[in-house]
Nucleic acid binder design. Structure first.
Lengths: 165, 165
DNA sequence: ATTGAAATATGTTCGTA
DNA sequence: TACGAACATATTTCAAT
């Protein structure tokens, strides 16, 4: 009986984070522009800046907000080629080791353990096809345990967004 | 001779965006926390706040900075399942139409035209496996032109980052 | 490109409802 | 929760180098 109580409390903490309409409006604005002034949001919604401030503190403490980022335009910096690479590892036990190596490669932006054919799926960014080829042949294929890779070059990214509240 | 001049100017505008070490330090800080006060960065680097401000203006005008975002923790909001879905379209001509439909599905976070087997690769986020199944069967498979899909569920994302400067 | 200082704008705290 | 007012910080501008 005590255990079921504790479990129900855990559920409350983990699942019942109340995000009302005002929270959503605040988050929607800030997800689009992390530097948008609180007062602008406040005026739009029709509550005080102090209220927004309180809600943001609540959302941060609840862990709803993970942080904020400046987004840099990789194309302007000369990175024109994005690709996904499915990686086959010959032994599952080598996975953590392989991931450790992948973390050392700055061009690797994402790395997922996945269901399906591959052990790992990564997203990478390269200056051009030449850079991509070097990366695959010299760095990724060189990782111990990597037996084969399948590369999918992103010819054009049509959607890039966060979850919609 | 005039044309070569114009071309060299275009190259200057598009490729020779000078990002020096100070720019990189500023961007590195703000990519980690978009709300980090300029003065803190200024003190760390050892130049004035006004100088940082000027450089940020320059970087914005050059298009290096695409914006800033608040990052929300999707897991806390109850979205525990991320997946990649490779989509086969029966006719390439249907691609733009299919992408238009995908844009209407809020769970679709990314969408890429790709080389390789599929026409399109998307990244999606779902509450749970049930939600994922509904999304695939009722919404994605229902799009006109979609002949087949291959789904890769992300069991664990080990790397999530931006380009390293 | 950079600075310091002034002017403006924004964020934060707090007593109260 | 929300408010407004007081307070503390941050940003932007600007003349000068």
């Amino acid at each position: 009986m005590e255990i079921t109580f504790i479990l129900s409390q855990m559920k409350l903490n983990h699942l019942q984070i109340e995000i009302d309409g005002i929270d959503k409006q605040i988050l929607r604005d800030l997800m689009e522009d992390a530097r948008k002034p609180i007062l602008q949001i406040a005026n739009k919604i029709g509550i005080s800046g102090a209220a927004i401030h309180q809600r943001l503190r609540k959302l941060e403490q609840a862990g709803v907000i993970s942080g904020s980022k400046f987004v840099v335009n990789t194309k302007v910096l000369g990175y024109s080629t994005m690709a996904f690479v499915g990686i086959y590892l010959d032994k599952a036990a080598r996975n953590p080791e392989a991931v450790r190596e992948l973390k050392k490669i700055p061009e690797v932006l994402e790395c997922h353990y996945t269901t399906g054919n591959w052990s790992i799926l990564i997203k990478i960014i390269c200056r051009d096809n030449e850079h991509l080829m070097q990366l695959l042949n010299k760095k990724i294929q060189a990782i111990d345990g990597v037996s084969r890779t399948e590369t999918f070059i992103s010819l054009d990214q049509q959607i890039e967004r966060q979850i919609q509240l």
